[in-house]
Design a protein around this nucleic acid. Structure first.
Length: 606
RNA sequence: GGGGGUGUAGCUCAAUUGGUUAGAGCGCUGCCCUGUCACGGCAGAGGUUACGGGUUCGAGCCCCGCCACUCCCGCCA
């Protein structure tokens, strides 16, 4: 070892010792007669002192011209700092190292952006941070994120091991299963025209492992989806993938509650209460307008369908007559919403096919009396007004927003607007949410199927291996919409952390789903899922599982909304790695080997 | 595929809304400075205003196109 200590280790009790430290030049303060260099490694930093009266001239000269981020090794004596010069901001601030010798291990060129100042560095354009990712990762806050990630990964493995799970690796060269997310394809050199696909998840392998009798499987699995990206979506990402045999939903709930309890303790030293609350899909939509509710604030949806049945206000009355619902939220304190903000909300509503967005601003008028300012309130009867006042607890300063539409649409419109209003209120300081508040929630009883009007067929709302609730199986052939799936999502603070289900383990039920409901032709079912249906014939245990988005989990723990901050080498929104400039073109020879001809205009190499 | 935002010195930003030589802070270079830790002081270098067109006497600013980054919608069984 070159070093005797790391840069966050020396304390007053080391005074007098000769030590060797290595690291990066974090900052340099040259006072002419004395020179301070803060040396940084991944653990922290230590002030070193260069005294020209005590050092050969060339050593002092060398030190005084060191660029930031040069890598050096120093040997010197630890001493307690003179009275009044201690730095309470850093743990090593009581001491300093008086340098006797300096070795420059690597001179750094002038940096493209500062890494020593967290304030400045966090504002640097992400494009340049990604291009020089190695510099970006040197920032203590980025190293901290990677450290959290590592600790949580290890805690997860240790917890799963303790629960009797086997970590099994599954292939990343898999078979194309063109349902669901678009896949990345890998051409097969040995058989022209055939392809592997990178797995969207190890779903099928983990079920097969249950048939294999593994009973308890987990993996920190890399998954690949060739879809457009978001702040919380990368083309390759990591899932904590879990599958168990001979269990029911309750076993999954308690397993994951235990895992998250351990993870939160490990990463944040927080004790989160378990068991988590549960809410049905229907209730989540009714109260929060979304299937992944953020329950850290209220502003819940209120139903007024009954009150507006037969209303003289045509928009509401007709809506109810046509089987729709009337929902409203009270955005307390937002009566002063700007025209622009109302515009954004209206556009949101229109995005769901609504014609507009009805609202009431509850404000004092010039005469000093409270008034409902709204283009529609003149159509309301006294009874309707009384119902609104009572159920929404209307008071001065409120902004009431309405959705009148079919149930799901009405809920979703207000669900979006509720989140938008919360953001606005947060911006105005009228809504504060503590950073250490984590509202975990199981969302359960999802509908097994949705109906695709365009394609005129059912589709799986989760995936086609999800088992129906046993009581609902007879409904599969009579009223598929009513069938509930044994599907569950784990949600925290409005973020979907993961989801899973109890699987179908009977080949006949699986076949019904594939062929009668999803209307996949039998030969296609055979070619895509035949091996699974066959596997299930030879003794498939009842089983179920879940997958947690590991990147999202770490992002939440690190307090960031972008998973790029918790992935060492992430890609841009267009899937480009700016550091290596990939993807890139390949040689004609490579293409020939793969029997591939590129027809699109070839991007010129620079 | 669609919509919004951004792009000016190495970095972060400004430029009185179309007007002379595009500025500041940090960083960088040189000099001064013995207790700093956002050290301080003096001086200096550094610009194809992303890129390509256009309008205009005149464009960082207006128009058209294009590229990149970013947020959102679609998409993500």
């Amino acid at each position: 070892m070159k070093r005797t200590q790391h840069c966050n280790e020396l304390r007053p009790e080391h005074a007098g010792q000769t030590v060797t430290l290595v690291g990066w030049v974090h900052s340099r303060r040259d006072l002419g007669g004395v020179l301070f260099i803060d040396l940084r490694d991944r653990e922290g930093r230590t002030q070193t002192v260069f005294d020209p009266s005590d050092l050969p001239k060339e050593v002092f000269e060398r030190a005084s011209h060191l660029h930031s981020e040069s890598v050096i090794q120093i040997t010197g004596t630890v001493r307690v700092r003179p009275e009044g010069t201690q730095n309470t901001k850093i743990p090593t601030g009581q001491i300093e190292v008086l340098v006797k010798s300096l070795e420059v291990l690597n001179d750094a060129a002038v940096l493209p952006f500062p890494v020593d100042d967290p304030e400045l560095a966090s504002k640097v354009n992400e494009e340049i941070r990604l291009k020089y990712r190695y510099l970006d990762l040197r920032r203590p806050e980025m190293i901290r994120n990677l450290r959290v990630r590592s600790k949580v990964a290890i805690a997860t493995r240790s917890y799963m091991d303790g629960e009797g799970f086997l970590e099994v690796e599954t292939p990343t060269l898999f078979k194309s299963t063109p349902e669901g997310a678009r896949e990345f394809l890998v051409p097969n050199r040995r058989d022209p025209g055939t392809f592997y696909a990178l797995p969207q998840s190890p779903q099928q392998f983990k079920q097969i492992l249950m048939v294999s009798g593994i009973e308890r499987y987990f993996q920190l699995a890399r998954c690949y989806r060739d879809e457009d990206l978001r702040a919380d979506r990368q083309p390759e990402f990591t899932q904590v993938d879990i599958e168990m045999s001979f269990i029911d939903r309750e076993d999954i709930y308690s397993l994951i509650e235990g895992l998250l309890k351990k993870v939160w303790k490990t990463a944040l030293n927080l004790d989160i209460p378990t068991p988590f609350k549960r809410i049905s899909f229907e209730e989540a939509l009714n109260r929060y307008g979304i299937d992944k509710p953020d329950t850290r604030f209220g502003m819940e949806l209120v139903d007024f369908t009954e009150e507006f049945k037969g209303s003289k206000f045509g928009v509401f009355g007709n809506c109810v007559a046509n089987g729709g619902v009337i929902k409203a939220i009270n955005a307390r304190g937002l009566a002063g919403a700007t025209q622009g903000q109302l515009e954004i909300m209206t556009e949101t509503a229109k995005g769901f096919g609504a014609k507009g967005l009805a609202y009431i601003k509850v404000e004092k008028n010039a005469a000093g009396t409270i008034e409902w300012k709204s283009p529609i309130v003149k159509f309301f009867s006294d009874a309707e007004k009384a119902a609104l006042t009572a159920k929404l607890e209307i008071q001065e300063g409120d902004l009431i927003l309405f959705a009148a539409d079919q149930w799901l649409n009405a809920c979703e419109i207000l669900g979006k607007i509720r989140l938008y209003c919360a953001d606005v209120l947060k911006g105005q300081g009228k809504l504060t949410i503590p950073a250490d508040q984590f509202n975990f929630l199981w969302v359960i009883e999802f509908p097994l199927l949705g109906f695709d009007r365009e394609m005129n067929r059912w589709y799986s709302s989760h995936h086609p291996f999800t088992a129906p609730v046993a009581d609902d199986i007879p409904l599969l052939k009579t009223d598929p919409k009513k069938v509930r799936g044994q599907h569950y999502d784990i949600v925290v603070n409005g973020v979907e952390l993961g989801g899973g289900s109890i699987r179908i383990h009977q080949p006949d039920v699986q076949k019904t789903i594939f062929e009668e409901l999803l209307q996949i032709p039998p030969d296609e079912t055979q070619s895509r899922f035949g091996y699974m249906l066959e596997a299930f014939k030879y003794g498939a245990p009842p089983h179920g599982g879940i997958a947690l988005g590991f990147d999202r989990l770490i992002a939440i723990l690190c307090g960031t909304t972008s998973i790029r901050d918790v992935i060492a080498f992430p890609k841009t929104a267009k899937g480009v790695d700016l550091m290596t400039d990939s993807p890139s073109t390949v040689t004609p020879r490579q293409l020939r080997d793969l029997h591939i001809e590129v027809k699109a205009a070839v991007k010129k190499d620079v």
